[in-house]
Write a protein that binds this DNA or RNA. Structure first.
Lengths: 347, 347
DNA sequence: GTGCGGATTGACAACGTTGTCCGGGGTCGT
DNA sequence: ACGACCCCGGACAACGTTGTCAATCCGCAC
């Protein structure tokens, strides 16, 4: 900027005025300055600018895994909203690791982002207190913050969705419904398990721990769990899977167990569910073609809502902390509407 | 930092030394400073730091669409590498819009990112010249920069992959192979079309424009194009689809045309390809279960390679501009190995 | 001629760091 | 006891902007 000023034969401040389209600059002078800018290929240093002004016009987004479609859709929506507010976006994946989440958040704070959108991996967010003190705003998405952290949060109706999914299977005659969820320490997984239990209770069905398997969507683990479930004396007639990855891996595992499903779509062989009914939490690509009934969340809306809320806060809204809960939607596609096979235990 | 210095009863510079783990500070003094830092909840302002130091320890990534699995995988890999180098990552989606790409890149440059990884939407990158002049480094990924822009680039072997895919179908007896690609102005789409033509030529087959449909993966358009292709006097017996989205939407379109495939997996109805063979460019989730033969790219490797290259440059490597071309891999799963139906035109 | 108002422009400090350089002690060797 | 040297701490400028305030110039009315 100094060079530009020298080249145009004006003072530093005049260049600043031109660059920022401030009024009170003679048209001829402005033209001379602009020419110098073009000639020198000058570009304002936003770092210095934000240092002086206090706001960085950037926000930070911490998600669980950028490569997961659920989070990348959320991410995309946040990005769109941020851009709309003239904000740039820092992104980082926590990989379900609380320390990484914390490091990312603090790194963003050191960059003095105006706000944060966090899909928390950890359950302790006291580390944010000094940042809140300093005026940084944060909105939590998909999962709430740990105890003692007062911040807005946008969730899906996890329990309600799982309840609806389980109730759907019950309504179609199922009595033995297995639940395959993620680690119970993950908020959404715990909530969905709760919804599943509530649906059972509402129908007067017993809760059988033997029908529940919680853990990350690891193919080998799922195969083992499913094999165990299906070998049991009183096997489930239906499955409720707790998230998109688990649903997909469950389909794979069932295919490998029944040994028949691979290539089903193009070869026309017997389907790969082995007679089981299935409802999956989260919609996923091609679930429509496969005929998989799901409880759909709307990750883009989750992201949009969180971002809108954040920008409202940044605009000065100091209302009480809010907690949004977005509805889920059950989409019947066939796999969740199959009746259980006729009972043979009373011949 | 001033406050911390005052609180600890030391000079500004001493706090700076403690914060940066610089040697030459008495252990007792350091402890006092650290205590003051904790007490005040102080966090270094990285904006000021980078202003002083010149490097921002951040890079910018411009992709086409953050919600697309191909780019989100690429993005994830870049993020990982950046984190590994202690760099934060700005991300933005160009939405296949050259102006947006340019705005994003320039916004990143105004933030003085150390480097850029760009999946270009436009074909004119002369706007980058002043940035290169200023020392910013850029690596292009998935598609090359426009003419006159000297920068490293990491691509997939698009033509080779498409050639292999088409050759695979030809080897299984197909003579009428349709190609469904994206807009030919997109580099990858043009290259894949070229590979398709090369494979035809190598097999002595004619190139029939009537068998080629190029455009975005719009469901309605694909349905119309497919209907037209299948109604023709001499319809194709096989399809080569030009990218992941197109493959998926083609499966949907075929299902809706043949009216039979929805729910195939769970219901066991006739498959939805209507007797057609299919090879898709890009692997996609559940392609294995569906039995769809694909030419797989490795988006994560694309991202990793680009990021590694960028950090090599940032570390001072001033070798000549390089152009990586990563191999693709044909994965047979059934849909690409089906023979054409017996010919009936010579009864 | 003098004073005044508006339009333009400029000088200077400040944002929060870090790099450079200097000084004040203490320790060690002679 | 004295100089050389090392360790630690501090003063100050600089990074590239922008906000504040003052200065200059012009035309015009009195």
């Amino acid at each position: 900027m100094n060079d530009v000023a020298a080249a145009a034969g004006v003072a530093l401040k005049t260049v600043s005025r031109v660059v920022n389209d401030e009024p009170g600059v003679n048209a001829a002078t402005a033209l001379r300055v602009k020419a110098a800018i073009d000639r020198l290929g000058y570009r304002r240093n936003d770092g210095a600018r934000t240092l002086r002004r206090g706001r960085t016009a950037s926000i930070g987004l911490v998600i669980e895994d950028a490569a997961d479609v659920f989070y990348s859709s959320l991410s995309r929506a946040v990005e769109e909203t941020a851009l709309h507010h003239g904000c740039l976006l820092f992104t980082g994946s926590s990989q379900e690791d609380a320390a990484r989440e914390r490091d990312l958040v603090l790194a963003f704070c050191a960059r003095r982002v105006d706000g944060l959108i966090i899909v928390p991996a950890g359950t302790d967010h006291t580390y944010l207190a000094p940042e809140f003190e300093a005026g940084t705003r944060a909105v939590f998405a998909d999962r709430p913050p740990g105890a003692g952290c007062e911040a807005d949060v946008v969730l899906s109706d996890n329990a309600g969705g799982a309840r609806a999914g389980a109730a759907h299977l019950i309504a179609h005659g199922h009595r033995r419904i297995a639940f395959l969820g993620d680690l119970p320490r993950i908020f959404t997984a715990a909530e969905r398990l709760r919804g599943y239990r509530e649906a059972l209770a509402a129908a007067g069905l017993p809760y059988d721990e033997g029908l529940v398997a919680m853990g990350p969507a690891d193919p080998a683990r799922l195969r083992a769990d499913l094999a165990r479930l299906l070998r049991a004396a009183d096997p489930p007639t239906a499955l409720l899977t707790g998230n998109g990855r688990t649903t997909v891996e469950t389909l794979r595992a069932l295919a490998s167990i029944t040994g028949s499903a691979t290539g089903a779509f193009v070869e026309g062989v017997r389907p790969g569910l082995g007679g089981l009914a299935l409802v999956g939490f989260d919609d996923f690509e091609l679930a429509d073609l496969l005929g998989v009934t799901v409880v759909a969340q709307d990750p883009a809306r989750l992201g949009r809502t969180a971002a809108d809320l954040l920008f409202l806060r940044l605009a000065g809204d100091d209302g009480p902390v809010t907690r949004f809960e977005l509805p889920t939607r059950l989409i019947p596609r066939g796999s969740g509407e199959r009746p259980p096979p006729p009972r043979r235990d009373h011949p």
